Amino acid sequence: MTDIAEPRTSGGVAITAPRRPRLPYPLVLPVLAALVAVAATAGIAAGSVGVPAGEVWGILAHRLHPALADPTWTPVRETIVIDVRLPRVLLCGVVGAGLSVCGMALQALVRNPLADPMLLGVSSGATVGAVVVVVFGLTLFGPFSLPLAAFCGALAALVAVYLLAHSGGRMTTVRLVLAGVATAEVLSAVASYLVVTSDDPHAAESALRWMLGGLGGTTWDLLPIPAAAVLAGTAVLLGVSRPLNLLLAGEEAAAALGLTVHRFRAAMFVLVALMIGTMVAVSGSIGFVGLIMPHIVRLLVGADHRRALPAAALLGAAFLIVADLAARTLISPEEIPVGIITALVGGPFFLWLMRRRAAS
């Protein structure tokens, strides 16, 4: 697959195949990695108790090996950095990277630049599962009750969307989008009903804040599962970069080059939905990250998924870390759900993108 291809049309929809990157690719990744490091440092340093950036790196180096830095800080600051802020920042990076990668994959799979990880209704399914646990106080599996319920809700939504979209042995893009939107609306209504009719005001408020997305109270125990899911899922998507590139040129062209489009698309939908469900289980419903980041990445490195997916992961990680930092500090000591921050940024971007497509 070359880096330059002419735009094509299929069914009246403009399709853009992979283009030549606008910046040297070896330069882009180190810059994005540095951006993640800067964002992570700021995310760990800022808060109700400020920690200098140099001290942050000293604490981290000392934890890696005591000989790397002399402990000139107080034990309280070390606890704040290691046990409170570091796991939260790492989870922000994991979720931001995962949402961005899933968004880029979905936009290729459905050949629609307006698609994002909420398209399949999986986020709404996870939300219903989590709200049930919060509202009814279910603790059968201890601290893992909420993530497990959210994951089961995501899987249930995936099955519902797949069954609704699959007809006659085939699954079309239009049917998939309609099934995803309808399922998401129904599940969102169910979650809202559970919150409104709850007899426990505290539980209802907690469920509402979770629905808006947030990473408050993150601990090390919550990090391994989503991190493993995002790393494994991203590795698989990198392994199928060529088929994803083929889909950008159209289903007919991809089929002519030997790709079994419907089988490949179904498998990728399952993979992406499982990734999204795992992330939503620990972060709540965070929108627009998977919509914005892929478009910015395509401007930087082109649409070839071999190059775009790693860049999307880094940019998404940096973006969500910064968004979470803003959510924690804008009205400190209160905290804004990070989903509100991403919506305030993503909403205008979505409207601009729609107008741009309408004018083209």
Results as ranks from 00 to 15, higher is better:
residue 94 V to E: 00
residue 289 V to A: 07
residue 153 G to Q: 08
residue 58 G to M: 10
residue 268 M to G: 12
residue 241 S to D: 01
residue 48 S to G: 15
residue 95 V to M: 06
residue 306 R to S: 06
residue 10 S to I: 08
residue 220 W to L: 01
residue 191 A to C: 04
residue 125 G to F: 07
residue 208 L to Q: 14
residue 230 V to H: 00
residue 35 L to S: 11
residue 291 L to W: 10
residue 21 P to H: 10
residue 13 V to G: 06
residue 90 L to W: 07
residue 204 A to C: 13
residue 36 V to K: 00
residue 17 A to E: 09
residue 262 H to G: 12
residue 44 I to F: 05
residue 61 A to L: 15
residue 231 L to C: 08
residue 70 D to L: 14
residue 264 F to Y: 15
residue 90 L to V: 13
residue 193 Y to H: 13
residue 168 G to I: 13
residue 13 V to I: 15
residue 82 I to W: 15
residue 332 S to D: 06
residue 101 V to T: 05
residue 163 L to I: 10
residue 89 V to K: 04
residue 282 V to E: 04
residue 323 A to Q: 09
residue 322 V to A: 15
residue 84 V to M: 12
residue 255 A to K: 13
residue 241 S to G: 15
residue 158 L to R: 02
residue 206 S to T: 10
residue 267 A to Q: 14
residue 30 P to C: 04
residue 24 P to Y: 00
residue 142 G to V: 11
residue 209 R to H: 09
residue 87 P to L: 03
residue 262 H to W: 08
residue 135 V to K: 03
residue 194 L to S: 10
residue 90 L to R: 04
residue 268 M to V: 11
residue 352 W to L: 13
residue 168 G to Q: 13
residue 85 R to H: 06
residue 194 L to H: 00
residue 326 A to I: 14
residue 8 R to P: 01
residue 190 V to M: 13
residue 70 D to H: 11
residue 63 R to N: 09
residue 233 G to M: 13
residue 198 S to P: 05
residue 23 L to S: 03
residue 194 L to C: 11
residue 266 A to H: 03
residue 260 T to Y: 12
residue 63 R to Q: 13
residue 216 G to C: 08
residue 43 G to S: 12
residue 121 G to Q: 05
residue 101 V to G: 07
residue 317 A to D: 04
residue 155 L to G: 14
residue 308 A to G: 01
residue 183 T to C: 15
residue 220 W to E: 09
residue 202 H to Q: 15
residue 1 M to V: 12
residue 235 A to T: 13
residue 282 V to I: 03
residue 298 R to L: 04
residue 143 P to M: 01
residue 25 Y to V: 14
residue 307 R to I: 03
residue 304 D to N: 11
residue 301 V to P: 03
residue 309 L to K: 08
residue 135 V to R: 02
residue 289 V to L: 01
residue 301 V to A: 04
residue 202 H to E: 15
residue 12 G to C: 07
residue 152 C to R: 08
residue 314 L to G: 01
residue 303 A to N: 09
residue 79 T to F: 09
residue 274 L to R: 10
residue 33 A to T: 10
residue 282 V to Q: 05
residue 144 F to D: 09
residue 269 F to M: 15
residue 61 A to C: 12
residue 255 A to I: 11
residue 310 P to R: 02
residue 241 S to E: 08
residue 314 L to A: 06
residue 350 F to S: 06
residue 327 A to L: 11
residue 53 A to N: 06
residue 68 L to E: 04
residue 227 A to T: 08
residue 87 P to E: 05
residue 338 V to I: 15
residue 166 H to A: 13
residue 335 E to F: 09
residue 85 R to A: 07
residue 78 E to D: 12
residue 258 G to K: 10
residue 38 V to L: 14
